[in-house]
Design a protein around this nucleic acid. Sequence first.
DNA 1: TTAAAAATTTAGGAATGCCTAAATATAATT
DNA 2: AATTATATTTAGGCATTCCTAAATTTTTAA
Lengths: 219, 219
Amino acid sequence: MITHAMEDYLKTVYLLQEGQEKVSTSAIAQQMEVSAASVTGMVRKLAAMGLLNYTSYQGVELTEGGKKIAQEIIRHHRLLELYLVEIMGFTWDKVHDEADKLEHVISEEFEERMSEALGHPTTDPHGHAIPAKDGALQEIAYETLTEVDAGNSVTIQHVNDNNPEMLRYLDQLGILPGIVVHVVAKEPFNGPLRLRIDQTEHFIGREVAGNVFVNPQTI
Amino acid sequence: MITHAMEDYLKTVYLLQEGQEKVSTSAIAQQMEVSAASVTGMVRKLAAMGLLNYTSYQGVELTEGGKKIAQEIIRHHRLLELYLVEIMGFTWDKVHDEADKLEHVISEEFEERMSEALGHPTTDPHGHAIPAKDGALQEIAYETLTEVDAGNSVTIQHVNDNNPEMLRYLDQLGILPGIVVHVVAKEPFNGPLRLRIDQTEHFIGREVAGNVFVNPQTI
DNA sequence: TTAAAAATTTAGGAATGCCTAAATATAATT
DNA sequence: AATTATATTTAGGCATTCCTAAATTTTTAA
């Protein structure tokens, strides 16, 4: 039987797994804000269930079965986020926490009816891809704004969704998925980035910039 | 800290409490499908938290604090049921189970946005009253169809929502809240009831009739 | 009123999921 | 290669929520 906690672990491993193949227990612990010891215990259980492969001290890797469950939960989460914004009128900073709770309890029918109401969407309000039903999610490892050299224009792809305050700030600046941003300059010593969006200039710090993922191609 | 299990206990006690003042542990156990021993344990904990009054062997009674939490959960449940039917297109037999899971995890904002989308409704799809925010729920103890004498007409008030199969059956017959039913006859030895709804006659068993609550007043 | 039946509680235990502290394995550095 | 630092696991515990079986209290009935 899959518990909510197990679903959370599988989701976390799935999202951390992008790029790398093996995920360390400490990375999981940090992401989930639980102790490393707790992760070891849970990972053993999930390995015994065949949902991931685990070798002591070597990290974990999801099996196909584990991936399927993770994708299902991520689909729930992202559909919920979009539904909350588009249909229910939530602001985009509030939906992550709400979706984190709801993702574990909604039925397949609930999922399907949300998808229908939204016209079977493919991205959530923060720009993350919504996995298709039983379809893999292949998110490209975009670079963040901090990595863009001055003088280049980029398109915002997605932003991290777990910090409501930062989301409100980004919304205020108009830094939203799909928007084109020109990086005018980057101040040295981890100084602010000077951005131009639609003739308006903004200065944002490196921490914020590191949470904004962009498409390197200029449009 | 209030857990989901505690919320379920408070909700159950609240609904059982209507009419009587004290609720026995065995009644709670039967309703929740857990052992009587489990109820004793939980009831002690809830009493220690000041959410209900409990005397050994004498049953329990919610305090004002306990009532408030119960009402909140019942409001969630019934708003969810109506939202699922009216906005999301669920059939009325599916919404009870979905609402039972969701009622514990939705935020106050989610509750408020549902209420708004529904125009601040006062009854759910099965005819149960939706408690107002911080408002008491006073459900009159209606009689069931089994108690109506032959020859009388009654208005369906509400139906029990926990048996999907029975709900589909009632829907098929058109036995829905607000509908007027004439009890033509009642066959002896716990035999069927002969009903007339809009010129059409139906025969239903006593078990079903016992789950249909009606208003004794003829309209 | 006393014995039997029913209801309720107590005792002891299991599963889940988290924790801290101590032990051990791996990686990095001199 | 030895030592230090870091990462990971093991051991032992705690809270929650359920269970069964045995003991106790209350109710019912002879």
